[in-house]
């Protein structure tokens, strides 16, 4: 599979803070990738680096095999739908569509008009007067109708209600299956978009937490629950990401596949085993990273 995006030890520092911290990731061609992380995890910064809007402090970035910064040959193949995109004063959605139509070679006007109908977007109203959901709809329409070879959606459905979100998933999948391309969606609403994704990349505090094929996620983590004493013993054998204790009962989220002998011990200890959902895994990963950071700060 061709790799479209590759970063090597990329960092973006603002004075003391590293928004992206020594990140090495890859995204392959013609797949829908999920970029997950809490607010402020560095998702937007990473996307801005990948689209040449920011200059990396260190490390290498390659998009379509080249540096994206100031590279018109790369950027013309990319569409970036940014959360909180700034639009010039006085612009209406129609103005944005006009500009996007000129910029994207693959632009499909029929799709754009169809999507304007689907999302009931008032195209002649000043953007300043639009709701958060309508603002998101502009981005979704441009992102889908541009048919760019590489499309980034940064938190694409903020402010959209349940019906509009379903519309977004439907239209994205419809257009993607007819016109395969590489799509990266960032989100912190995880379980809802999980079925759309082929791969999942989780970042936290600008660092890579994990990268998995969605179909392997069942192997990425599982949760075990049982009596506190049983869990105390079992926790010795496995890589514990998160633990919750309620009364005499405990639940732990365990990273990775659990070897058969350990599983046998689990059944001897009468532990209940369940695959962790993507959301569980995500929370567990980011929480444990936070504890580690805190522990380091306290030393």
């Amino acid at each position: 599979m061709t790799t479209v995006i590759q970063t090597r030890n990329v960092s973006k520092r603002y004075k003391a803070v590293a928004a992206v911290d020594d990140l090495s990731i890859e995204f392959e061609e013609h797949r829908i990738h999920g970029l997950l992380g809490r607010n402020g995890a560095g998702k937007t910064t990473l996307m801005q680096l990948l689209t040449g809007q920011l200059f990396a402090t260190s490390g290498q970035i390659s998009v379509f095999g080249e540096e994206p910064v100031e590279n018109a040959d790369v950027l013309r193949r990319v569409c970036f739908i940014q959360e909180g995109q700034v639009y010039p004063d006085g612009f209406t959605p129609e103005h944005v569509l006009t500009v996007a139509r000129g910029i994207h070679a693959g632009w499909d006007e029929e799709t754009a008009r169809y999507l304007v109908d689907v999302f009931e977007l008032p195209t002649d109203r000043k953007i300043k007067k639009l709701s958060r959901g309508q603002l998101s709809a502009i981005g979704i329409i441009v992102g889908i109708a541009s048919r760019a070879e590489l499309t980034f959606f940064d938190e694409p459905y903020l402010g959209l209600d349940a019906v509009a979100r379903k519309n977004f998933y439907d239209e994205l999948l419809r257009d993607f299956s007819e016109h395969p391309r590489t799509i990266v969606i960032s989100s912190h609403h995880i379980d809802e978009i999980a079925p759309l994704l082929e791969t999942v990349t989780v970042i936290d505090s600008g660092k890579l937490m994990m990268r998995h094929e969605v179909e392997d996620l069942a192997d990425a983590a599982s949760s075990f629950s049982g009596t506190r004493a049983a869990i105390d013993e079992f926790a010795e054998y496995v890589d514990v990401l998160e633990r919750t204790d309620v009364g005499g009962l405990s639940t732990i989220v365990v990273r990775g596949t659990v070897p058969r002998p350990v599983l046998e011990r689990a059944s001897e200890l009468k532990l209940e085993r369940q695959p962790a959902s993507l959301q569980d895994l995500f929370v567990a990963l980011t929480e444990s990273a936070r504890h580690e950071r805190r522990a380091r700060q306290n030393v």
């Binding site: 040449g52 950027l75 569409c79 970036f80 940014q82």
Partner: peptide
Amino acid sequence: SFALGMGITR
């Protein structure tokens, strides 16, 4: 900001 967001180079 808008132009960079649309993939125009500096």
